[in-house]
């Protein structure tokens, strides 16, 4: 239970006081901050609307002339709300957060990636290595390699978008069976982890590409 700084009402943790509407927001998980159930499926339109609606009601401008405690509560609640919105808006960060919230670690029992993905990543890393070598030599080859790596990057971004869509398409199914205990639930968590770690692996590769192309430009 927490106590509202404005009206002293004791209540369960939530973003706004149930009695007077003053900002509370202490000790909330990000789903609770937005008043959403802990589910993977989120309607984007509803998320936007809730975020803007709550944001208006706890906005620091509204509390500028109020007590220090209330002004402070408004700032903290606003920061929490923004973090919740940013995390839950993106299917990938939402999935990762959901796992964490439910006590699962992405890397547990999940140490390897599918062979075709590993092979693709290996190919790109070889291209990056070639680019590193070519950069010290004459220009033409480096230019060609840079173009090839840049194309790969576009392709990788597309794969990540595909992964995001795969998440969204499966969220409802995972939610529907997520309540079950035992092996069925574990299998679903594993499915979610596989898609998320594939995306994480691709993001790491893109980061390597970004670094290489940036340093190639700087050189």
């Amino acid at each position: 239970m927490i106590k509202c700084q404005a009206c002293d009402r004791e209540q369960q943790p939530r973003l706004l006081c149930a009695q007077c509407g003053a900002p509370l927001g202490a000790g909330l998980d990000l789903f609770a901050a937005l008043g959403l159930p802990r589910k993977l499926t989120i309607d984007p339109a509803r998320l936007e609307q809730t975020y803007h609606d709550l944001g208006r009601r706890i906005h620091p401008d509204r509390f500028a002339s109020k007590s220090v405690r209330l002004r402070d509560a408004s700032l903290r609640a606003t920061a929490l709300l923004t973090r919740a919105y940013r995390t839950l808006r993106d299917p990938v960060s939402r999935g990762l957060y959901w796992l964490e919230l439910n006590g699962h670690k992405l890397a547990d029992n999940n140490k390897s990636v599918p062979a075709d993905l590993a092979e693709m990543v290996f190919e790109v890393q070889e291209q990056l290595a070639d680019l590193r070598v070519a950069r010290d030599g004459s220009g033409g080859e480096a230019e060609r390699l840079r173009g090839a790596v840049d194309e790969r990057r576009t392709e990788l971004h597309r794969m990540i978008e595909g992964g995001s869509r795969e998440l969204v398409q499966n969220f409802a199914r995972w939610d529907a069976h997520g309540g079950a205990n035992g092996a069925g639930r574990d299998a679903l968590v594993m499915e979610l982890k596989l898609v998320l770690s594939k995306i994480a692996y691709l993001r790491t590769l893109i980061r390597d590409i970004d670094r290489e192309l940036d340093s190639a430009q700087a050189a």
Partner: peptide, 13 residues
């Protein structure tokens, strides 16, 4: 054998 670790981005052939 080509294998990769999603955790750190490593890849090994």
């Amino acid at each position: 054998g080509v294998v990769g670790a999603p955790e750190c981005g490593d890849v090994m052939k």
